[in-house]
């Protein structure tokens, strides 16, 4: 029987004093969510059928956008539910262990790491801010002077001007994004930059010039959202989108090999 189930991890939290799992939560396989405790920590887990979640099955499923969306939402829902009971370290989608014993062993092994991380994110919340611009509003004013000479030369000049304008627009938009980022970062204890999303998947027009996460102390939440609004008003050419509160997805990743993007932490 145990061979047919695996343990899917959602999050790690401090062990709750009363030891009760989050009530009424179901996970990626509609399974009830439970806690596996060890080393003063608790892993929020569910038992999922291997038939659907072993390596081969997962590889197939990950190609299926509909399955992926449904399951990713379930994963996030459990993390959010667990976060209502206290600070969590969200775990990466499709973190699977063979059984509960291995989960306990993992908790013991990484106890220090987890405890440090929990302490670091305690009383703080992740917010996402995206900024989009319409490149046209950053183009330099058209320069009417150049319409000299013969058609071939004029064509080349026009193309050159277009290219330069495009570069200028990008530079200006990036500078504006930098300004916005530094204002927001002043209220955050840590920031993380993400690559712009694929416009085909995220369905937006124009350029995404900012896609960052900010770890904001809970008592500054209102200041932070007010600042996003104020910046949006100050820079009408930039569309700002704030999302959250999120469990601290961007600030709890295990140490990665050098070369990967690391959140920047300011000494507090």
């Amino acid at each position: 029987m145990t061979d047919t189930l695996a343990t899917w991890l959602y999050a790690v939290t401090a062990a709750p004093e009363d030891g009760t799992p989050p009530q009424g939560l179901t996970g990626v396989a509609d399974e009830p969510v439970r806690l596996v405790e060890g080393a003063g920590l608790a892993a929020v887990v569910g038992s999922v059928p291997l038939a659907d979640f072993d390596e081969d099955a997962l590889r197939g499923h990950l190609e299926d956008l509909e399955w992926l969306e449904r399951t990713a939402r379930a994963h996030h829902r459990v993390i959010n539910g667990a976060a209502r009971h206290g600070q969590v370290i969200p775990l990466r989608f499709a973190t699977l262990y063979h059984d509960d014993d291995r989960v306990r062993a993992m908790l013991r092994e990484r106890r220090e790491d987890f405890t440090d991380t929990l302490r670091r994110v305690a009383g703080r919340t992740e917010w996402g801010v995206k900024a989009y611009v319409d490149p046209r509003s950053f183009l330099p004013d058209p320069d009417e002077s150049e319409d000299e000479g013969s058609p071939g030369t004029a064509y080349l000049m026009r193309r050159r001007a277009q290219r330069q304008d495009q570069e200028t627009a990008h530079l200006r938009a990036t500078e504006r994004a930098e300004e916005i980022h530094s204002s927001l970062a002043a209220l955050a204890v840590a920031t993380a930059a993400h690559p712009p999303q694929d416009s085909a998947l995220a369905a937006y027009e124009g350029w995404m010039v900012l896609n960052n996460s900010y770890l904001v102390p809970d008592d500054l939440t209102e200041d932070f959202t007010a600042l996003v609004r104020a910046l949006g008003e100050r820079y009408p050419a930039v569309t700002l989108e704030v999302s959250g509160p999120w469990p601290p997805y961007s600030f709890t990743a295990p140490p990665k090999p050098a070369g990967d993007a690391q959140p920047e932490e300011k000494p507090s």
Binding site: G149, S150, P151, G152, T153, A154, Y155, L156, R159, R160
Partner: peptide, 18 residues
């Protein structure tokens, strides 16, 4: 931009690309 071509060459290039 490097300025290494004559006006005539430039015109020809432009016409071709156009």
């Amino acid at each position: 931009e490097q300025g290494g071509i004559s006006d005539e060459q430039m015109e020809k290039l432009g016409l071709t690309l156009m």
